[in-house]
Amino acid sequence: MKHSSKPEPCAPLDWAARFQVLAQEARHPSLQKFYRAGTVAPQTPIEQVQLMAMDVETTGLNPGAHSIVSIGLIPFTLKRIRCGQAFYWVIKPPSELNEHSVTFHHITHSDILHAPPLSEVLDALLEAMAGNVMVVHYRNIERGFLDQALRRQLGEGLQFPVIDTMQLEARMHRGNRSWLDRLLRRAQPSIRLADSRERYHLPSYHAHHALTDALAAAELFQAQIAHHYVPGTPIQALWD
């Protein structure tokens, strides 16, 4: 799997301000509503932020060619992950499921036979996301696929702030690689979801169910903050 190699942006992002602009620019009413719900100010301590763990399972890795087959969302804060308010959708992709991804996601043809197309869940999805800061493991997938999907459905893309637990893990475990490590080609610690969780003594789950992976990301984020940050950390230090 390809990992982001871009450096972190130096200037902290002010998503609250950007959402105000996006609310003006958006044409589709669902998007206008989404941006108008706004987001927290950059200095808001992370302990006060309403978070939403998200995982999207897809038929492949390329947002241009592949489609979403399921989406899992679980709202949470630093204190609690609320399974009772979780969302989960199986989605009928416009393209056929290939055999490989079928075995990968445990979602079969009969599951998606009666599933709605993405267009039918978009409003509910945007409503669930509105006002929350998304937490994902490897942001490029969720951001890329949602942006592409909306472009196809509504003719305009989707932007939103994301905390990427994989990125945080990379900062912690890949930031200070010494010249000796590089010289000796010492293996970098894995920052995949399961391996990252293990570092915090979190239990191992069956991967590739959108809701389980969302739960796994939420738990990982709580663990990362407990070990490496303080609850008062401003969100601008974490999101992107």
Binding site: I81, G84, A86
Partner: peptide
């Protein structure tokens, strides 16, 4: 469906 989860260091 109704459980809440939290991590404790």
């Amino acid at each position: 469906r109704r459980i809440e989860v939290s991590y404790f260091k």
